[in-house]
Write a protein that binds this DNA or RNA. Structure first.
Lengths: 250, 250
DNA sequence: CGCAACATTGACAACTCTCAACCAATGTGG
DNA sequence: CCACATTGGTTGAGAGTTGTCAATGTTGCG
């Protein structure tokens, strides 16, 4: 019924393999979808609130965020995206964007016309189901963020975020052993985690002091993810990876 | 192409009318979907984390919540549901529940087998689109909660919540003028808004002291929703009501 | 070298939590 | 009808967490 994705699988296919068991025909159909590849500079808006996009964007390489702007112009990061994600998949059925979507690092993006996705959905109902499921996983991650922001203190909130990032990167083969790339500045992190940059800084120091993380430059590493998971009450079930692709639970 | 829902429209149809312009045939197909009606006592779990439901539940009357349980057993409310909502629609494509779903008040629930919904989706792609959209609106509300919990203080957080509730009730014709039913205890509210019950109490007092709300029993009313919206930075765009059904923006 | 972006620090204020008690409304049993 | 238990709302005091402001390091890069 399905094959395991190889390391050099295109990011979208690799990601879809983690949420559905696709047939060879379905995989081929996905490969054939027309996609325009575009190199996006760091910190560049791709979609703004109020836009009505007619294409979706796959993250092929690099990192992206979604954010909202407060009345005062403050930015509130609401989601973080890794290769294989389709951050604006919702635009397929929800015409008006209610938030912004931007690159964080330099990013390679794959643009797929809505029309092509609609055709794919009609021709391959199981792919439609998989895409629907992708948006549902998106929502599940939001729910977990609600818990994280509403009910955990700065330290475990940060631990939880790092565990989620590590897990999601591992799923698509982007974790380097114990380390992950963390392209967010502390101010970005603070914004995503609902705290001030100063407190974010002190929280990172506390994590380092406890020996839970080490960071050199843009990379963060952790000798004991289990300890970090305990601190952050992290349980990856909410990311809904199908068993056949569940990554090493180290 | 579409008709405006009448007051005594079944809640699901009334809700779907606010997110899609359905044809008479599509509306009839929805009416014909087999649904078992069940009376549910207050505060009763309908679905637990780990369950794999084979039906979806429409809220016909009353209120429901979704929540997660922390390791220590603490409950974290992640969503609030009003008549017309299908809180577990995600189970159609995401087999394993990652959270719990329970009645809050006495509730009339309509249970629809997944099979029937899948058939409906196959036969009526535009209904499938509308249901997909419903799950996307769900996700949009989660995003707004992320902003609310992460970036607003207790007072405006509470104001925002009340505005959302009022708006969503108004959409399905369940607001009584300036008042709404608020069946949550202060402890429930505190839990949903990520604060302690004591602080919730003081926050409600502050809202009353400022003349923004009045509450008698299980009902809350507000003379000036505009002021409350300003305080809560509430803008209903994220609820994605289609223009033809947009309720009075008072 | 010198700028610019990011990280870090200290002092202080503000917000929110915890604990522990008390009040008010409601419902039940005797 | 009252005594009592239960639930939900309220209060006060004190502690803990987090935010703000303003300044100082540090690093990378033109």
């Amino acid at each position: 019924m399905s094959q395991i994705a190889s390391i050099d699988e295109p990011p979208l296919l690799r990601r879809l393999d983690t949420i559905a068991a696709l047939t060879a025909a379905e995989r081929e159909a996905i490969r054939q979808v027309p996609m325009v590849v575009r190199e996006v500079p760091p910190r560049t808006d791709l979609i703004r609130e109020g836009d009505r996009p007619d294409e979706c964007c796959v993250v092929l390489e690099g990192f992206a965020i979604r954010y909202k702007l407060a009345l005062g112009g403050d930015r509130r990061i609401i989601a973080f995206h890794v290769p294989g994600d389709i951050p604006d998949l919702q635009s397929l059925h929800l015409a008006r964007m209610d938030h912004n979507f931007a690159s964080l690092t330099a990013m390679r993006a794959g643009l797929i016309p809505h029309r092509a996705l609609h055709e794919l959905n009609v021709r391959h109902p199981r792919i439609a189901g998989a895409l629907w499921r992708a948006t549902l996983i998106d929502a599940s991650i939001f729910r977990e963020w609600i818990v994280n922001l509403g009910h955990r203190d700065a330290l475990s909130r940060t631990a939880h975020f790092l565990c989620e990032l590590h897990f999601r990167l591992a799923v698509v083969g982007r974790a380097n052993g114990n380390g992950i790339e963390l392209p967010l500045t502390q101010a970005d992190l603070a914004d995503a985690l609902g705290m001030s940059a100063v407190h974010m800084n002190r929280t990172m120091q506390e994590l380092r002091a406890r020996g839970l993380i080490e960071d050199k430059g843009r990379t963060i590493s952790c000798r004991d993810w289990r300890a970090l998971r305990t601190l952050g009450e992290f349980d990856p079930d909410y990311i809904h990876i199908t068993p056949h692709e569940k990554p090493d639970p180290a």
